[in-house]
């Protein structure tokens, strides 16, 4: 039995289709990432799976339970961390935690070992009001509250948005150790670099799943040659490359451009060609595709079909 099994779920808000025939499966002890930009439908899917929202079409099972028929039972077994910090800001760290423990009919002591690694980091501040915590500590508290009743499936909706880089790394380390306790985790993020930290990922855009695979496999499957192009006059180069016949796509990536070509070329030949056309300080190197390249390529294709 899979921890989460979704079959052809669709959901519309008036005229906008938030989810379009989404299907995916998450195994036990698996860390599954839902990767997509804002507005892709990630939160809608979370709300459906946590029984807060009814789907228009399709079926889904969480921990083997039907999301509509067995919603009461599901609520006892899942941990949910909404995208927005949703704990009581005017209660202290400890009060929040014991509140959530009690409403699930358990105590902090009973499941302390499950949250220990996370909670020890915020325990020194247990008398502090939740609203006065820093972003990273808030996330840790929210995760502790979502874990306190020993859920079998954990839903984390953009847990690292608005959290500093160090806390983000710590957070992902915590997720790794949780997965070893056989808890299935569905996590969404708009950050492509976090994708590689998941066991399996689904790329989602405009309510449609573009691809589901392990991140390594997904990157390996990128077929076309990919180059990183670095220059001082990025904008002019971008416009120039767009017009070249060998260019499949070119997009800015931080301080360089990622160029996908239609034919196999050596970086030296591209560099030479550009130099002849007046771009003197260009450095071209062949690179391996990242998740973001895959995502942009796939969304480009999906866009062309539409």
């Amino acid at each position: 039995m899979k921890a989460i099994s979704i079959q052809n779920i669709s959901k519309s808000y008036k005229d906008t289709k938030a989810l379009d025939c989404v299907s995916l499966e998450v195994g036990r002890g698996q860390l599954f990432g839902l990767i997509g930009p804002d507005g892709a439908g990630k939160s809608t899917l979370f709300r459906i799976l946590t029984t807060l929202l009814l789907a228009d079409e399709g079926e889904a099972f969480v921990d083997g339970l039907h999301i509509e028929k067995d919603y009461r039972e599901i609520r006892k077994r899942v941990g949910y961390m909404p995208g927005r910090f949703s704990l009581y800001q005017d209660l202290s760290v400890e009060e929040n935690l014991s509140f959530f423990a009690t409403i699930f009919g358990t105590t902090i002591d009973e499941n302390y070992d499950l949250i220990k690694d996370i909670y020890v980091q915020i325990e020194p501040f247990k008398k502090r009001l939740a609203g006065k915590l820093s972003g990273g500590m808030k996330q840790k508290l929210a995760l502790s509250c979502a874990l306190i009743h020993k859920p079998s499936v954990l839903f984390l909706d953009e847990p690292t948005t608005g959290v500093d880089a160090v806390s983000r790394k710590e957070f992902w380390d915590m997720l790794k150790s949780l997965k070893e306790k056989n808890i299935a985790i569905l996590v969404s993020t708009p950050y492509m670099d976090e994708a590689t930290l998941c066991d399996k990922i689904a790329l989602i855009q405009e309510g449609k799943i573009l691809k589901i695979d392990e991140p390594e496999a997904m990157m390996a499957q990128f077929e076309r040659p990919l180059f990183a192009v670095k220059t001082n006059s990025t904008y002019q180069l971008l416009n120039h490359l767009r017009l070249q016949s060998f260019t499949h796509s070119v997009l800015p990536f931080g301080e360089c451009l990622h160029l996908v070509t239609t034919e196999t070329l050596s970086p030296e030949s591209i560099q030479e060609q550009l130099r002849l056309q007046g771009f003197i300080d260009v450095v071209v190197s062949k690179i391996r595709a990242g998740i973001e390249d895959v995502f942009l390529d796939l969304s480009h294709k999906a866009g062309n079909h539409a």
Partner: peptide, 13 residues
Amino acid sequence: EIGTIEQINVTPI
């Protein structure tokens, strides 16, 4: 407004 109702709804309350 704060979103706590969301969290409360995903509990057996």
